[in-house]
């Protein structure tokens, strides 16, 4: 053992270094978020509670093709359709078992009509399991609650980020441009 090592061992150098670090942290801003009081808004394209989209006339966009249910990895979407007058397809029931859902967003990707969406709402708790079996009415209600106004129109752009608008051209793609101004 060299003399330097002995000195370091006797004077607890490495432990004091660690303690100095924790002491310095006292004067830093806290990073903790005081959650129920201070809420951090969800980022664009967040995958939260489901909603069924309405079109401009206020009717449900869903036509009951069943693609979301076919793609769903946890098989939590149940769609029941029947044949109406002049052979039109009628969506009788559209139900999502939210407790089974894994929020992968595959239903949104599959839907060819932009009818199912995942809202930014994530604080849902109920006292009964039944409340999480979302029927069509509840899902449409969610749309009115969480996608009122221009938010619903913006939704798919945010879900797919910049890709869907500029798929064929690569202009405006995110590229490295050094550090942002003011942080150098």
């Amino acid at each position: 053992m060299t003399s330097g090592k002995i000195l370091k061992t006797v004077f607890f150098v490495e432990i004091l270094k660690g303690l100095a670090l924790t002491f310095r942290t006292l004067f830093k801003h806290p990073v903790t978020r005081r959650y129920p009081k201070v809420k951090v808004p969800a980022k664009a394209g967040f995958r939260g509670l489901h909603a069924l989209a309405r079109n401009a006339e206020g009717r449900m966009k869903c036509v009951g093709c069943g693609l979301c249910g076919a793609y769903c990895p946890s098989k939590c979407i149940h769609i029941y359709t029947s044949e109406g007058d002049d052979h039109a397809k009628i969506v009788d029931r559209y139900e999502i078992d939210v407790l089974r859902c894994i929020f992968c967003g595959f239903c949104v990707e599959a839907c060819p009509f932009g009818a199912i969406t995942l809202s930014e709402h994530y604080e849902y708790s109920e006292t009964s399991r039944g409340a999480f079996y979302m029927t069509r009415e509840k899902l449409l209600e969610n749309w009115d609650k969480y996608f009122a106004g221009p938010k619903g129109e913006r939704y798919f752009k945010e879900f797919w980020l910049p890709q869907s608008n500029t798929y064929s051209s690569y202009e405006g793609q995110a590229m490295f441009r050094g550090r942002a101004k003011g942080k150098e």
């Binding site: 967040f46 995958r47 990707e109 995942l118 980020l161 590229m175 490295f176 942002a180």
Partner: peptide, 26 residues
Amino acid sequence: LCGARLTVSYPRVGGVRNDISQEFLD
């Protein structure tokens, strides 16, 4: 990047789900 924090499901067979944003890269 993709709207989820833990179970991301971001890469896809043949690429990734969506392009990244400038904000994310910075």
